[in-house]
Amino acid sequence: MASGCLAKIVSSDTRHNFLLHYLAAIGVLLLTPVIFGVSRLDEVLAAQPLEIFLPLMGAILLPAVFMPEQNESIRDVVRSKKTAYLGVCFLRLIISVFIITLLTGAFMLYMKNMDCRVSLRLFAGSFATALALGSAGFFASALSDNVIVGYMTSIIYYIANFGLKDKLKVFYLFSMSAGKFGDKHWLYILAAVLVAAGFAYRKFVKER
């Protein structure tokens, strides 16, 4: 890609289409210490904010990937350009995932500073939860072409974790808070499958 194009795409996209989303994600981060204790926690207690609240960042960011082009005439204009539209969407996804990584990491450093026992597996677990929660909404919005349905799906998944709990088996999001650290790889698999399926649907069904 020619010089300056990628930078332009990212900066314009961020400013006009996703600024509020990124701010909302930071809002989640700032609210966490208000709702949860974040000092001198052991691993299981530290899992609570990292698993139950911080991953909401995923639910805010990932379902919105296709949102700016929900208007079909905008989508046609963007798609008629040389740069692949789905490539732009993938770029957005990567940026969102990067922001989640960054904010989760920053928050864990803060917790460490507050004498919590934080570990790499906590980070991996929190990150997996955010991805799983977000990718559910991502998949739904890719299919329905409606970001509201995307948010709805993410939130239903979230609420189901309070209501159904263990009935969700390996896809239970709050397993670390219950002292189980081994199931999180399933969430990575879930997220990967849903993201791949969402893009595949867009590529092979919607853009046919």
């Binding site: 990628l6 332009k8 795409i9 314009s12 963007v78 040389k82």
Partner: peptide, 11 residues
């Protein structure tokens, strides 16, 4: 400018 960037035109 944005759509130009999508078309791959240098800055």
């Amino acid at each position: 400018d944005y759509l130009g960037a999508l078309s791959g035109i240098p800055k």
